[in-house]
Amino acid sequence: MSLLEVNNLKKVYKTRFGGQEVEALRDVNFAVEEGEYVAIMGESGSGKTTLLNILAALDKATAGRVALQGMELSGLAEKKIANFRRDNLGFVFQEFNLLDTFSIEDNIFLPLVLSGKKYSQMSEKLKPIAARLGISEILKKYPYEVSGGQKQRAAVARALITDPKIILADEPTGALDSKASDELLRLFGEVNELGQTILMVTHSAKAASCAGRVLFIKDGEVFHQIYRGDSTNQSFYQKITETLTLLTQGGNQ
């Protein structure tokens, strides 16, 4: 059994006044094994964010099945969803999504506090993570006082601190300069080495080339996927760009 299984997933958006329907996902199938590092690529509007939102139970699928460790998301009661998200999933977003009302430390603690953890437990847990991410010095600062890269690392810490089964990242490097991007990708690689499963949506071939597998989405379906295998970052990067060219030029399959 895979960690994450997605079968025949379909999502149709209805505009508010009934009118037009947008089919964001038509028939998505894939699985993620434990410890995998998967990147998802696709053109703008191809439904990547939609997919991630459904995986996160932030949105409901129109049809199809999503299961995490065999547990189906659609079967979750509305009340349990927030708990589920907190206990099993970690998020990293493009816009960091730190709350300006909290210090960096409190931002990271937020999911744990919601689960009712004690301060001493939380700070024990934070120490090694903060050290690894290089944010020990800025914990007491507020989001407006730190750089974008630091904010994103704080967001990663917030995702990691709950020991999630899977980390979902939506264009995590999107708002970072190349140096901060490299740093973040290095960290992702590191935590993946330690066994953390990661699912990352990205537009950047370079970012994708750090993953172990890349899924390409087009027209609401998984169009193609490539594995890194034994190839180096460099040659994997080559393969990805080739596939992307194919994706954009190939038009209809």
Partner: peptide
């Protein structure tokens, strides 16, 4: 803010 809290696992 509340949008973020939702994503981090706060229930409605």
């Amino acid at each position: 803010r509340f949008e973020v809290m939702k994503k981090v696992g706060m229930s409605k």
